[in-house]
């Protein structure tokens, strides 16, 4: 029986073989797809539950008067949005957040490039200096904010001690509504710029040596070499830093919370939108109202990011 059945008629079997090969291939591809799904599932689950879906949920609950627990949650349309837009502290918080970003982004860009150019040498000594510049980045914000609160103390602090030593007028720093936000920006620059210095250093290290050497041979000054060769070549990296710093500053919380004592003061001068959302949703349990503010904030962030992306096409030099 077995022998009879398996006796082949040659060309039919060729077709069969081809078909079965195809079937096998398809089965294999299907198996691969299942495998991929299985491997991706855990990460996808977390991202779906805690990032993707919640983003839509935030949009949805902003239209309701949402309560946790048994109470009913009536639909109230755009009320939360219009309330937020008319709320003077929300308006102020948007301006404050923008002001903070305006202080942070240019200073991060400029200081990171300057420090990178300064530290762009090989050797243990410069590695050590890089370590010093990066160290604050690893420190927890509340912990180091305590030190800075004391540095910024108007009566006994190091900051005024320094101004005094230079013969300059002293400042109220965090206790002055005008200087509070710049003071926080100084802290954040100290805390975060090391990260960007390392990125710029990596970009500079990857530059083609011949180009810089050729420019030097042609008699271009160091200043000119930087503006005409180095900066255009690292412009994609600078653009990357621009984007992450913008997004990062718009999401800053720890340093602002710690340096303003959790209040956003004095006189709401450091009340950022994120701090206000935190207060609204968690201190006062207005989850829907907080969500509406968050959505408005996200719209601002998206518009900003897209604008920057559009602008980059003109200013960034891609090789």
């Amino acid at each position: 029986m077995g022998i009879l059945q398996s006796t082949p008629v040659s060309d039919v079997s060729g077709l069969e073989a081809e078909r079965s090969l195809l079937r096998k291939k398809r089965a294999a591809r299907l198996r691969q797809a299942w495998m991929a799904l299985l491997f991706l599932a855990p990460a996808a689950l977390f991202l779906l539950v805690f990032v993707y879906l919640p983003s839509f949920v935030a949009l949805a609950i902003a239209f309701f008067h949402y309560h946790l627990g048994g109470a009913s949650s009536p639909y109230i349309g755009m009320t939360n949005f219009s309330d937020a837009l008319q709320f003077n502290i929300f308006q102020k918080s948007l301006l404050n957040t923008g002001y903070y970003a305006l202080l942070m982004v240019p200073s991060i860009l400029i200081v990171s490039v300057c420090l990178a150019l300064l530290l762009n040498r090989v050797g243990t000594y410069y590695n050590f200096l890089r370590t010093l510049v990066l160290l604050p980045y690893a420190t927890p914000a509340v912990g180091t904010a305590i030190g800075w609160l004391w540095i910024f103390n108007p009566t006994y602090g190091l900051a005024n001690g320094f101004l005094h030593w230079l013969g300059l007028p002293v400042s109220g720093w965090l206790q002055s509504p005008r200087m509070a936000m710049p003071s926080i920006a100084i802290y954040s620059l100290w805390h975060g710029v090391g990260f960007d210095v390392i990125i710029v250093l990596a970009a500079i290290a990857g530059l083609p040596k011949q180009m810089l050497e050729a420019a030097a041979v042609d008699g271009a000054s160091a200043w000119k070499r930087f503006w005409k060769v180095t900066l255009p070549l690292i412009s994609p990296t600078m653009f990357f830093i621009l984007i992450i710093t913008t997004i990062g500053t718009l999401q800053s919380f720890s340093q602002i919370y710690a340096l303003s004592g959790g209040t956003g003061g004095p006189e709401y001068s450091t009340m950022t939108t994120l701090l206000l959302i935190y207060d609204t949703a968690f201190k006062y349990s207005h989850l829907s109202y907080g969500s509406a503010m968050a959505i408005l904030m996200v719209i601002v962030i998206i518009v900003l990011t897209l604008t920057q992306r559009y602008a980059s096409k003109r200013f960034v030099f891609y090789q």
Binding site: Y52, S55, A58, I61, Y66, I277, V298, I301
Partner: peptide, 14 residues
């Protein structure tokens, strides 16, 4: 690209 603001409150609810 999704800012943390977007999912803070829903995550709390979840």
């Amino acid at each position: 690209m999704i800012p943390a603001e977007a999912h803070l409150i829903p995550n709390y609810i979840t």
